[in-house]
Design a protein around this nucleic acid. Structure first.
Ligand SMILES: [Mn+2]
Ligand SMILES: [Mn+2]
Ligand SMILES: [Mn+2]
Ligand SMILES: [Mn+2]
Lengths: 153, 153
DNA sequence: TTGGATATATAGCCTTTGCTATGTTATTGT
DNA sequence: ACAATAACATAGCAAAGGCTATATATCCAA
């Protein structure tokens, strides 16, 4: 395991403790596994709010993926209880789907608004927020929200 | 495709243009595919700087994955020219590996320092930065760096 | 009311990223 | 010098997230 020298006298190290670092990596991997679900329900909520319908083809177009890719993911969302599907009428959010969409959209908007508030262009803010949002913890979200409010004032 | 009504008179919509949104999602997916490579070379650089060695077992422990998982990824890193492997002496960075490590570590540190600068605890900053870093564009990175410098001053 | 356009479903394939189990090889302490 | 230990390699599996090609079902306009 690379034990080498046990009596090193507190050498300067840019490395954090192995377990601590491991926790961060595990958290990042965990967040990655929720990304798609969050993006789907948020997008479905927006489509429903906008036009009253959330069809596979629309979802596919906005995500930039093929329709069968969406079909497969919708099955997962149904299995996990986030949406319901009505044949040839698109999909709809369940109550827990609505709740996840609300939380996701709120966090997304806070991240995007924050980026703009520190001088990032709206285009870049939009691009970066789409990925960053999924790795923002509640604590960080609070900090971002407070900061943005301060700047606006 | 959901054409519905063509003479809608500029209805208020929280939705951005489909192509614009698609670009953001595509960028996020693209960033996700570089995450692992970036984390590996950065970690390898830190291990080398710290103890002179970067062994599979150490990498596995710090990432929180199994050793064969690391072995497989190291093959990819070799194939892509980021590292070299010396039997039973661990791995070493090529020049392009060193360069990617430098850039990744720099960005990582800027993101983490920034989070601390807006009042996030060091533990949370470390956790969140591990995921956020991979979705921070050069433009956003500049903004974060400038902001942190301002606060410190 | 019916045929064409549109939407959805399904099959089969691929890559990535993870795992466990197990074999092999190099290093090292005695 | 050599056996024990540690490091590494490999096989085989699975799940997630993509794709294309193609079949089927519904809707709607003429
Ligand atoms: Mn989002
Ligand atoms: Mn997103
Ligand atoms: Mn990093
Ligand atoms: Mn990372």
């Amino acid at each position: 395991m690379n034990e080498k020298n046990s009596q090193t006298i507190e050498v300067e190290s840019s490395l954090v403790a192995p377990d601590t670092q491991m926790e961060s990596f595990k958290q990042a991997r965990h967040n990655r596994r929720s990304e798609l679900v969050e993006d789907y329900v948020e997008l479905i909520a927006d489509l429903l709010a906008d036009g009253g319908e959330a069809r596979q083809v629309d979802i596919a177009q906005r995500l930039g993926v093929a329709q069968p890719t969406v079909a497969k993911m919708l099955k997962r969302l149904i299995a996990e209880g986030y949406i319901q599907q009505r044949p040839y009428r698109g999909v709809f959010l369940t109550s827990i789907g609505k709740e996840l969409a609300r939380v996701s959209r709120e966090r997304h908007q806070i991240v995007e608004a924050f980026l703009c508030s520190i001088g990032v262009s709206v285009e870049t803010a939009r691009m970066d927020a789409e990925g960053i949002e999924h790795h923002v913890s509640p604590e960080t979200l609070e900090a971002l929200k407070k900061f943005t409010a301060t700047v606006r004032a």
